Amino acid sequence: MTEDNPLKRISLKNPIHLFAVGFGSGLLHPAPGTWGSALGTLLGVMLLALLGTKTFLILTALCFVFGCYLCQKTAEDMGVHDHGSIVWDEFVGVFIVLAAIPTLSLPWILTAFILFRFFDILKPFPIRYFDKKLESGFGIMVDDVLAAIYAIIVIFLIQAWG
């Protein structure tokens, strides 16, 4: 690591940074977004089973609002918009998809994870547009919400044809 490494500008002792990097999952390489999504999936499944869908959706909405602030603050502290280690947005995105699966069975959980990662990586229109144009915490969060929506559409189609 060099002295100008953005990761040297954050601290896991700072709760804002700790949440933004997904409790450290965003610091894993390669593919920090996938590691963040994996931990988000595990956490989301546990919370969804514990809280039920309605309360989980309220928590997810709160996580989105909270995420707009903490992702923006961490990006500012790092000096890089949407650094790959910021994965709170992946947590929220996969939470949204998990809330839409018909059961908390392993096949559906894996489907939610894979579809979310597929659309988060591919960034079909308009996801890529918003990812490039919005340079705020909201911008960091919204592309993952859109990826979640694409994944949910596919899940609904699978259910309709299944």
Rank of each mutant, 00 (worst) to 15 (best):
V21I: 12
Q159W: 00
L157D: 12
F138D: 00
H83S: 04
A20V: 11
F23I: 03
E90R: 02
G93P: 03
M46Y: 14
L28Q: 04
A38N: 07
G137C: 03
V145H: 05
L12T: 09
P15Q: 13
A112H: 02
T2N: 15
D77N: 13
L106T: 11
G33L: 03
I155Y: 08
H17W: 09
C63L: 14
L42F: 15
M1I: 11
G79I: 05
P6N: 01
I153R: 03
S136N: 14
E76P: 05
F130P: 08
C71Y: 04
W108N: 01
L110M: 12
G26A: 00
L115F: 10
M46E: 12
K8F: 04
I158K: 10
G84W: 01
L115W: 09
S25V: 02
K54S: 15
M141Y: 05
L27A: 09
V94S: 11
L106I: 13
V45H: 04
R9W: 08
A38H: 02
L50D: 05
Q159R: 14
F118P: 09
K13W: 15
V92C: 11
A151T: 10
D82K: 03
E135W: 11
G67D: 07
F95L: 05
V65T: 07
D77G: 06
L39T: 01
P126K: 10
I101M: 08
L106K: 08
L104E: 08
S25T: 14
P124F: 06
D4L: 14
P6A: 10
G139P: 02
L39H: 12
G52M: 06
A100K: 08
I140E: 02
G93T: 04
A75R: 03
F125D: 12
I121S: 01
Q72A: 15
V97L: 03
L134N: 10
F95T: 00
K132E: 13
L98Q: 07
W35D: 05
T60I: 06
C68N: 00
D144G: 06
D143E: 10
C71F: 04
S85M: 13
M46T: 09
F95G: 07
R128G: 12
I158L: 15
H83Y: 15
L50Y: 13
P30E: 13
L62C: 15
V97H: 11
V94M: 02
L48N: 12
A31H: 06
G40W: 03
G93E: 06
V65D: 02
K133F: 02
A151M: 00
A31G: 06
M78Q: 12
L43S: 11
V142E: 12
I155C: 09
R9Q: 14
